[in-house]
């Protein structure tokens, strides 16, 4: 006999299923804002005493001068750290990390990198991350943790001396902080390009489905 109700099976099969839950979307965009504020103010701070033979163009810095850049950096850090911590806790507690980011196997990564380079990597099911995505997302979370720890160490090298000691010394922590920023910028470029190439993934990060 035909049923008169919609079963779970059927609901799951319809296109309205949630790909990105609300907490992921909210935290993702707060993180995006915080990261951009941190990067642009960080470039302002970098320019005051460059580590390398270049400075960032003034138009791409925040704060107007070193003092302003520092105010932005040490304000946006709260947004970044509180949101980031909430994301890590929720990600582990809900099992999302375990489910979406793992396992990451070398053969899986190799296979998907090859598929991506030959434009054969499918995005039919956005709920399942391919191995390249898993590696990049897990990797960027680690970089995020590293940039916060080096940043905290540089902010309080005496009170949090063990953080600085963990990275060697103060100047080393500063270099690691810089390279983490560079890695995040590189990720950002690839991430945005791919989101634009697969617009339904951007849509899912905004409306969830």
């Amino acid at each position: 006999m035909a049923s008169l109700t919609v079963t779970d099976e059927q609901v799951r099969g319809n296109p309205a299923k949630v790909i990105q839950p609300a907490w992921v979307r909210v935290m993702h965009w707060i993180n995006a804002l915080a990261m951009i504020l941190m990067i642009l103010s960080g470039w302002q701070i970098y320019n005051a005493s460059p580590l390398f033979a270049f400075t960032f163009p003034r138009e791409y810095t925040l704060g107007g001068w070193l003092g302003g850049g520092l105010l932005w950096h040490f304000a946006a850090m709260w947004l970044l750290m509180i949101n980031g911590l909430a994301y890590l806790v929720t990600g582990f507690a809900t099992g999302r990390f375990a489910k979406k980011l793992f396992p990451i196997t070398p053969s899986g990564v190799l296979h998907d990198v090859r598929a991506a380079l030959t434009f054969k990597l499918g995005h039919d099911d956005l709920t399942v991350y391919n191995y390249v995505q898993r590696l990049l997302y897990a990797g960027i979370i680690l970089v995020g943790v590293l940039i916060v720890l080096t940043g905290l160490g540089m902010w309080k090298p005496v009170q949090l001396y063990y953080l600085v000691a963990l990275f060697g010394d103060y100047p080393t922590a500063r270099y690691i902080h810089f390279f983490c920023m560079a890695a995040i910028c590189a990720f950002l470029v690839v991430h945005v390009v791919l989101a634009l190439l697969v617009p339904k993934s951007l849509r899912a990060m905004i409306i969830g489905r």
Binding site: I45, Y46, A48, S49, L66, L70, Y170
Partner: peptide, 8 residues
């Protein structure tokens, strides 16, 4: 170690 607000 003397740490300057500029980072050096």
């Amino acid at each position: 170690r003397h740490i300057c607000v500029e980072g050096w």
